[in-house]
Amino acid sequence: MCCSGFLKIMMFVFNGGIFLAGAAILGLGVWVKVDSGSLLGFLDGVEDAPDALDQLVHVSYLLIGVGSVLLVMGFLGCCGAMRESRCMLLTFFSIVLIIFIIEVAGAIVLLVFQGLADQLLQGLEDEVRKGLQARYGDDNSMTPLWNSTMEEFHCCGYKNYSDFENSPYNTRYGTFPPTCCNENDNATAVCDLAHAERSDVPGCFHVLLKFIEDNVLIIAAVALGIAALEIAAMVVSMVLYKQIGSKA
């Protein structure tokens, strides 16, 4: 009886962790979805972008799906232990095993993508530059998106200010976006060529590369933590499943 009670407590602990992790992932997915000014957003406006990068735009749906499933699984595990339902425990074990396999595969893909991120992003340089020089300043969807991205991440163009040379904006005003100049160097609030040349504002794709690399490690660490909880929960659920069966 004591052992059974301990196992139930362990099920509540493990599934409580899974439930909280699911809530966190679901919240992150919702945030990414509603944050239209994030770096993921402007990938929609890049022509001929690699398929691997294009899929990043839809990462919010994956996060929302995984978070929702984890929420359900946490609830199912706790309910199965409380009611001592062998059917619910077996269902819990089976679904968690499937999710565990998917998460391991996803973590491997993320780690592999980290090594390919630099190569993929470098392959976008020509297309992005062409798009900026042809449309920035005239395109009512591209221009605000790039402005919000550059303001949020304190970056300029793909590599630097030169990406905006001969763009509609540069041709019309003879200047560059204000974010392409250092704040303390742009006292006149006009980012002309002289100010832009001596600025050290990084390109947005260098910032994006660092953003991806940093967050891939965080996501992989979270996934490994969730996987550890899931393994423990599967072991405990099977032990509890057998104990309930022996009672019957």
Rank of each mutant, 00 (worst) to 15 (best):
C2R: 11
C3Y: 02
C3P: 00
G5M: 11
L7Q: 09
K8P: 04
M11I: 11
N15A: 05
G16M: 08
I18Y: 00
A21G: 09
L28P: 00
V30F: 11
L39K: 00
F42W: 00
L43N: 03
D51L: 15
G67T: 11
V69W: 06
G77R: 04
A81L: 06
R83F: 09
S85T: 08
S85Y: 00
F93T: 08
I98W: 04
F100G: 09
E103K: 04
Q114I: 06
Q122C: 08
G123A: 09
G123W: 10
L124M: 14
E125I: 05
E125K: 14
V128F: 02
L132G: 03
G137H: 03
D139A: 10
M150A: 07
H154R: 14
C155R: 01
C156M: 05
K159W: 03
Y161H: 13
Y161G: 10
F164E: 00
S167W: 01
P168A: 03
T175N: 14
T175M: 03
P177K: 08
C180E: 02
A187T: 12
C191Y: 03
D192I: 08
E197G: 07
F205R: 03
V207G: 02
D214P: 02
D214V: 12
D214M: 11
I219L: 14
I219Y: 05
A221V: 11
G225H: 08
L229E: 00
I231Y: 05
A233Q: 02
A233L: 09
S237E: 01
M238H: 01
K242N: 13
